[in-house]
Amino acid sequence: MLEISAESGDATLKAGADSAEGLFRELALGFSSLSRGGAEVRPLERRRVSLSASDGESLLVNFLNELVFLLDTQGFLPAGLEGFVSLTGNACRLEAELPGETAVPGLRRDGMLVKAATYHGLKLERRDGLWRAEVTLDL
């Protein structure tokens, strides 16, 4: 489940999945969808991401900010996520590989530039066996 809406100067990603990995994969795809402006992102290369945080919210924001950094410095957008995400306890962790692509055609003309992931209105919860998140991205 993934919903994307662009608001006044920012965008909101709402995602849901039956696992933490699935949730982060949906968020990564949402980030790419917003940034690529309709162009296809192909799994042509990979980036390794390793993150830890004291809580799930922080891990989620840090993960999306990692994507902002990869896009801004390398033009890299993810086409998926393979790996391990732990959102429980006070030592949350992500060890993953991101298949994806650099220099996606049309990015400059059609894409929205995500500049930061924020804690504004951030929601992260597990309910009825489903992980759900809502996060605001500064454009």
């Binding site: 004291s54 919210e57 922080s58 840090n62 900010n65 902002v68 950094f69 500049k115 930061a116 992931a117 924020t118 804690y119 504004h120 951030l122 500064d138």
Partner: peptide
């Protein structure tokens, strides 16, 4: 943007340490 991103994280931890109640995490 990166300076702000970095220091929102630093300040979240610092606020807890200094006992600053936050009406909004940002």
């Amino acid at each position: 943007h990166q300076v702000c991103t970095d220091f929102v994280e630093v300040m979240r931890a610092a606020a807890a340490r200094y006992g600053i109640a936050l009406a909004d995490p940002q």
